[in-house]
Design a protein around this nucleic acid. Structure first.
Lengths: 127, 127
DNA sequence: CCAAGTGTATTGTTGTATTGATACACATGG
DNA sequence: CCATGTGTATCAATACAACAATACACTTGG
């Protein structure tokens, strides 16, 4: 995996270390990161995105305690071997659930009918 | 408007005062809050949700500087008269755009096809 | 008139979160 | 063996949100 595959938005309200963890969670669940695959080093990611190495380390540490990553002493971090190549579609869909709930709530507050929302999302999903 | 119409999540990462502002923005854009309608007082909202009055005042102040609300001296805050009853569907949809973009990005990272995402959202939107 | 209701400015405190700088322990590989 | 590469523990700096307690200016309604 390349450090450029991570999307970092330093100005977003969401803290950087959490952006990284959640992104890893999705990339692993979707199978874009295979079990055993080595991640870019803390300093590599930090250098590429011009952020602090400790911020990346914090993300890696959290991902490890979550069971996503494994420490290979002296080598770095790798996708945990216990992770299957890719979770089932329903499991992956479940990861989107909170976001879908919030979206539905906002649409309701806006008094938007379902149809235009679905139409717009369809377009964004590239169909 | 009743104080109970506002949804406050004290443990959410998003600060309370911003939860209030964004909720007002949507409720006004959708027409659930009509122009001229009086809002519940700072102390009323604070009491109902067990939060600090100054937190509500901060939200009201921001909403005013954004042109959403108007100060009626001695009476309280009201939905700005310049606000039409409800914005066009496209304008309201535009308020959802950032969230839709993020959702699409996450679905892509999860390697989820469009169909199950749309199916789930359709259900949540109550169709 | 005046009590009671508006919103708000002020000051201070508390708790928490994020990021940064530095130094360290460890394993690898030539 | 040791330079070089891992990750990370530690401490400090900073920012922010929320709360608390007042005090104030203003308008309304009896």
């Amino acid at each position: 995996m390349d450090a450029s595959l991570l999307t970092i938005q330093p100005n977003a309200p969401e803290p950087i270390y959490r952006q990284i963890v959640e992104q890893l969670r999705r990339l692993i669940a979707g199978g874009q990161l295979a079990a055993g695959e080595l991640l870019p080093s803390v300093r590599e990611v930090a250098g590429f995105h011009a952020i602090n190495p400790m911020t990346v380390s914090r993300a890696y540490g959290l991902a490890e305690s979550e069971g996503l990553l494994e420490r290979l002493r002296g080598k770095g971090m790798a996708v945990a071997a216990t992770r299957r190549a890719s979770q089932s579609e329903n499991q992956r869909l479940a990861l989107l659930e909170p976001q879908l709930l919030e979206l539905a709530r906002h649409a309701r507050e806006l008094e938007l009918p379902a149809e235009p929302v679905l139409r717009r999302l369809t377009k964004l999903l590239g169909d």
